[in-house]
Design a binder for these strands. Structure first.
Lengths: 339, 339
DNA sequence: CTGAAAGCGCTTACAG
DNA sequence: CTGAAAGCGCTTACAG
């Protein structure tokens, strides 16, 4: 069933059917109704490929998730992000093509994404400091937006949270509670969020005029196993509290603590990051920084759709608010407890 | 940069360039090399829409995940499935379009998926007993495969595990250990896997000539919160052991047990299903049925690609093996412990 | 408000 | 082994 057929059945030209399909106002109302009736009756659905070829756009958004560690994808972060993007796309009558790419892209993969002549734009769940895909995108002219800020190029559009400020606030909270020997388990330092959150940790200490102790900084990889391993190495160094740069890692830290028979927060306090669904249900429930992942996805999609509609517009940035969620994994602090 | 240009630069016709691009053997070797050289030099990438329109296929697979409860998507099951599908697609030079659909599809959504003229076939992470999309697919002629068996229509292709047999084995294990008062927290009974696993539970009891007690059967929804709520209601009924139809629900059950100060496995033993990454790290580690989710995804994709290549072939079925993984959440059993 | 026609960038018989 | 040409199913100036 194609345009031609619908035109014939409606007794109009293909042009007119096309106009009706595309909501062109220049169609007489009764003509429109007649065509619409036929469309409904025969269940006509325009061919996306033909449409894309003729119109030069497809209402398809690409989503690329650069994934080194496959374990990372187990983090609910990505499902939430995808959900946000997907729902915004549904709302705006767009579809999404998904690429899970190894960040060691071959050049061919990059070309496939940027020049396939199908997608109207792409969302990159960007996390690496130096992503060759992002660079290719910046040099090309396919609209794109990053989820996660770009560290250097100020021509790119993105949506993000202020990871540095949020981490700083989280650590400041620990300091306010009276904790002093505060460690951190960081994300990978080649990921922007990982570096930014460590930065925030440092800033919070500096705000109080405290020196930071390199022994209390352990690099994790945003996975549960990574948090577990880091916490084990950290334990002998006797931290009073730990700022863990993701809830997933905090879960691992919690496990290491449990195995070592350390009580949380009595022996070691913990603060996570993300406020993933499981954080509230952890034992003990995690104090953590809530970030609106799903909303970030939705906004990224909408931003991209807008960028596609209005090309040549300046870069757009949206910084979403975070919120420190206080739960049982840190309490009144060691000083207070002594009284 | 299009075919025309490449043809001009190579000094051949568009037809020849097209043949080279598509690995048609009917091209003289030196011509092929010449064209390839130009293709590489200018970074030519064929336009997917044009290609799809002309050739009638696109090497794009649709993936639809019918999602009622959005909380369900937090289950690592879907990320794993997507990873499997995605990696198989990469391997076979295919791409994937993703639809997260409310299973209360509007007819329009179904048409959009089945008649968009873009995808060559679709994978449905089918879980509902009666999915209108699946029915539409069965009546149409777009190749498709389900992840999860179809309960009635024996013309559909799918990959699945034997949920019934696996559940039966898990419960038989509890029985062997000496547990008798065995409860189950089921998945939603409008999901095939949910119904099949309950069936397996019943079969295991029957194998031993044991009657089953309706009071010991609680319906969950495959979420952590659902498992938690079900376990709370179950507790007063004093089960010795519980077969929980998914690890995610088992996590919730574990939380309810912990809050009620019940020890696992001393007071209540637990068996889960899925062997999700977190199952081994739970406290205590979960005995559970391992199913190869990622592999199921990969096989579904490969099956679909094959079905597309060889249309009109009979339905294909693959049942993947499961394995009962013994961990600490159930032990020698109440009888044994008395000695 | 409507239609005839060109064109989007490919593939693929067909002829040679 | 190669090229000219038709055609895939749409959209969109253009003319009326």
């Amino acid at each position: 069933m194609n345009l031609e057929e619908v035109a014939r059945l409606s007794g109009v030209s293909r042009s007119t059917v096309s106009r009706v399909i595309n909501n062109d106002p220049n169609v007489r109302e009764d003509t429109r109704q007649r065509v619409l009736e036929v469309v409904r009756r025969v269940g006509y659905q325009p061919n996306t490929a033909a449409r894309g070829l003729a119109a030069g756009h497809t209402r398809i958004l690409g989503l690329v998730i650069p994934m080194g560690v496959s374990a990372l994808f187990a983090d609910p972060y990505f499902p939430l992000l995808i959900q946000g993007i997907s729902s915004a796309c549904n709302m705006h009558d767009h579809s999404v093509m998904l690429w899970l790419a190894d960040p060691d892209y071959e050049r061919r993969t990059i070309r496939q994404i940027t020049h396939n002549g199908l997608i109207d734009g792409v969302i990159v769940a960007s996390m690496l400091m130096d992503d060759p895909l992002v660079q290719a995108l910046a040099e090309g002219d396919l609209p794109f937006v990053l989820v996660g800020r770009h560290p250097t190029d100020n021509r790119v559009s993105y949506v993000d949270v202020d990871n540095r400020a949020a981490a700083r606030e989280a650590v400041a909270h620990l300091l306010r509670l009276g904790y002093r020997r505060i460690a951190t388990i960081t994300g990978p330092q080649n990921m922007i969020a990982g570096a930014d959150r460590l930065d925030g940790y440092r800033a919070a200490l500096k705000d109080r005029g405290l020196a930071f102790d390199p022994d209390l900084i352990l690099e994790g990889d945003f996975t549960e196993a990574g948090g577990y391993a880091a916490m084990q190495r950290l334990l002998p160094r006797r931290p009073e509290a730990v700022f863990v740069a993701s809830d997933m890692m905090a879960l691992g830290a919690l496990r290491a603590l449990r195995e070592a028979a350390c009580r949380v927060p009595e022996d070691v306090a913990l603060v996570g990051f993300d406020d993933m669904p499981f954080a509230a249900r952890a034992d003990p429930p995690l104090t953590t920084v809530r970030q609106p992942v799903q909303r970030a996805g939705a906004i990224a999609a909408e931003m991209l759709i807008d960028l596609i509609k209005h090309p040549g517009q300046g870069p757009r940035r949206v910084i979403l608010p975070t919120e420190l969620i206080i739960r049982a994994s840190c309490d009144a602090g060691p000083k207070a407890r002594k009284h």
